[in-house]
Simulated assay, not measured.
Amino acid sequence: MTAPLATGTEQAITAIGLTKSYGDKLVLDGIDLRIPEGTVFALLGPNGAGKTTTVQILSTLVAADSGQAWVAGHDLTRDSDAVRAAIGVTGQFSAVDNLLTAEENLLLMADLHHLPRREGRRRAAGLLRRFDLTEAAAKPAATCSGGMRRKLDLAMTLVGEPRVIFLDEPTTGLDPRSRRTMWEIIRGLVDDEGVTVFLTTQYLEEADRLADRIAVLDRGRLVAEGTADELKRRVPGGHIRLRFADPGGLESAAALFGPVTRQDTEALTLSVPSDGGVTTLRAVLDVLEYASVEAAELTVHTPDLDDVFLTLTERPGHSAQPGHAPGGPKENAR
């Protein structure tokens, strides 16, 4: 079976009906994915959702029980060597060798990719400059900070110049400044070089900042997919907040919109339910203008990804937190 034809943008990853069980535990229950080239795709989900298992299958570390998948145009089952040649994988746990220097780690990866010695040194030097690791080139990796080690870990993944990169919780344990640096590097790979990034993360802000599209995986099933804004509009809680200069304006506006609104008489604000869309905003402004009621300030509030995550994965007696799927060993492949 050949890969499904893409419409418009070529697909970097296509998966149809992937399933996986470990014993009597169903980890993936028939998921479908279509991820365009040159984008960041984020997979979110609570502990046990199946995120890491999905990465392991698509990066050829484990085999699916059923379903088909194509990565970088290659059949995952029939042409796994070509898939491995086209991808890079950076796991949550660093694969950096602490006894080697930063440069030696990169040269080791060049040797594993069977690069000529001169080409390997060229790529290592370029990656050291790109990741601002030149000063650490001759230092043992064990002496590097956590942020530097994560940058080196990602640089090692790039030695083979992969077109598709799987990042399994790449910023776990980093401080906010190091995390933002990693975000800039990841986004640059996509925007400047057209690399496709498949990201799993426990930081919802990370998915919001980086991802072109986000999918929510829960108990082995994809329960939602879309852009961050599209997902935020799916959950309740969005509203337009109007602030007025005097109590009279507040009372007039409250009478226009009826009992669905929420008033704060001290702050002189009125909250009108909204899906965050332009059409709703325009309708609210039209009502105010028609009644000659003027608001001193208007702000649009939409649910964040925390609200989306909790709404889509919440179930009785369970505290949904982002994390790893069980089953199968946690591995870091390149």
Rank of each mutant, 00 (worst) to 15 (best):
D286N: 13
V260S: 13
A155K: 02
T269H: 05
L115K: 02
E206G: 00
R241H: 07
A124K: 04
R123A: 05
R221M: 00
K232H: 09
G317P: 11
D29V: 01
R209A: 15
G88E: 03
A85C: 10
I35K: 00
M1V: 15
P162Y: 01
Y203Q: 04
D286Y: 06
L108T: 10
G120I: 03
G17Y: 03
A138M: 13
E161F: 02
Q56L: 10
A137W: 04
A215Q: 03
L26C: 11
T299Y: 04
S21H: 11
R262P: 08
T14Q: 14
F41T: 02
A6G: 07
E10F: 04
G277L: 06
L28S: 00
S252W: 10
V284Q: 03
L310D: 13
C144M: 15
R334I: 09
D175Y: 09
A141T: 09
T200R: 00
T90K: 13
A63K: 14
R117H: 12
E10V: 10
T134A: 15
D208W: 06
A224C: 08
A255T: 14
T261K: 08
L204E: 03
L43G: 01
A136I: 08
A49T: 04
A12R: 05
R262G: 09
M182C: 11
G237C: 10
F244W: 10
P322W: 03
G73W: 08
A253F: 08
D175H: 10
V195K: 14
R84E: 05
I16T: 12
Q11V: 09
L107E: 07
P140M: 09
N105S: 02
T279I: 11
E206W: 01
D246I: 09
L100A: 07
K25T: 14
E289P: 10
A333L: 15
Y203G: 03
S21E: 08
L199W: 05
P162N: 01
K51H: 02
G120S: 04
Q202P: 05
V216M: 02
E37W: 09
D168C: 05
R187F: 10
Y22S: 01
R117D: 11
P316M: 12
D29G: 01
L5E: 15
L210F: 05
S178F: 11
G48D: 07
P259E: 07
A254E: 12
A211F: 07
R179Q: 05
L112K: 05
V40D: 02
S59L: 04
T171G: 05
S292T: 13
G277F: 08
T201M: 03
E225P: 04
T19V: 11
Q202F: 02
P329R: 14
R117S: 12
V83Q: 03
R121S: 10
D111G: 10
T171M: 02
C144K: 13
T77C: 14
K330F: 14
G50T: 02
V27D: 00
L242Q: 06
T54C: 00
K25E: 12
R209D: 13
R123K: 08
E205K: 00
L5M: 12
G276M: 07
G23K: 05
P36L: 02
F166W: 02
A49C: 06
K139V: 14
D111A: 11
T90L: 14
D191E: 15
S80T: 13
P329I: 14
L43V: 02
A254K: 09
